Simulated assay, not measured.
Amino acid sequence: LQGRCTDSKTGKTLTLHANEEMLQGLRAFVETPEGRAQARERTKVEHALASICNRKKHRARYIGVRLNEYDLNRTAAITNLHIGMAMA
């Protein structure tokens, strides 16, 4: 193993995320029963939004707000029907 170590004079450094303490607190919260319940509810919403994003991709289909709003509502309705049928 020693042969795989660096012989740099400065050595390696480890930088923690600026919000590492908060992230660790959230990980601990998700381990509690109430945290798991909130995570389950959040997962339902995020799954539906991800389904819409997967259908629509990253670009607007039309020029103008009116047609794109219609297209988004249509896609949301299709997603809701798809999720509703999967649960039945």
Rank of each mutant, 00 (worst) to 15 (best):
T75W: 03
L14W: 08
T75Y: 07
L81A: 10
A50R: 14
Q38P: 01
L14T: 08
R61M: 00
L23D: 05
T32L: 08
E31S: 11
D7S: 02
H17N: 13
T43L: 11
K9N: 07
T43M: 10
L49D: 03
R42A: 12
P33Q: 02
H58A: 11
H58D: 06
V30D: 10
T32K: 14
A60V: 04
N54W: 06
V65G: 02
T6V: 02
N73H: 14
H47W: 06
P33S: 05
T6Q: 07
G11I: 03
E20S: 03
T15H: 09
L16S: 07
L1H: 12
H17F: 05
A86M: 10
N73Q: 15
Q2N: 07
N19W: 07
A37K: 12
G84S: 15
E21M: 08
A48N: 03
M87P: 01
H82F: 15
L26I: 08
L72I: 08
E46T: 00
M85P: 00
K57R: 15
N80D: 12
L16F: 09
G25S: 13
K9G: 03
G35M: 06
L1E: 13
R4L: 02
C53F: 03
C5I: 01
A86V: 03
E34I: 02
R66D: 12
R4A: 01
N54H: 11
I63W: 13
E69F: 09
A18N: 07
T10M: 03
P33G: 04
I78R: 09
Q38W: 11
A88K: 14
R66S: 04
L1V: 10
K44P: 00
F29C: 05
L49Y: 15
L26Y: 11
H47G: 09
T75Q: 05
C53R: 14
T32M: 04
G25H: 08
K57M: 02
K57L: 10
Q24E: 07
S8E: 05
L67P: 00
E20P: 00
L81T: 10
I83C: 14
M87Y: 15
N54Q: 15
D7Y: 06
N19I: 05
H17K: 13
I63A: 11
G64Y: 01
K12D: 03
K12N: 03
R27C: 01
A88F: 14
E46I: 04
F29I: 01
H58V: 05
K9W: 04
K9C: 08
V65L: 15
N19K: 13
E21S: 07
K12R: 07
E69W: 10
D7A: 05
E21I: 03
R66N: 09
N80I: 12
T79R: 12
L23F: 04
Y70G: 05
K57I: 01
A39S: 08
A77Q: 12
E69L: 07
R36F: 04
N19V: 03
H47L: 09
L16R: 14
K56V: 03
K44W: 09
R74L: 14
T15S: 06
A76F: 02
S8T: 09
K12A: 08
L81V: 06
S51Q: 13
T10Y: 04
R42M: 13
N73E: 11
L16K: 05
M85I: 09
L49P: 00
M22E: 04
P33L: 02
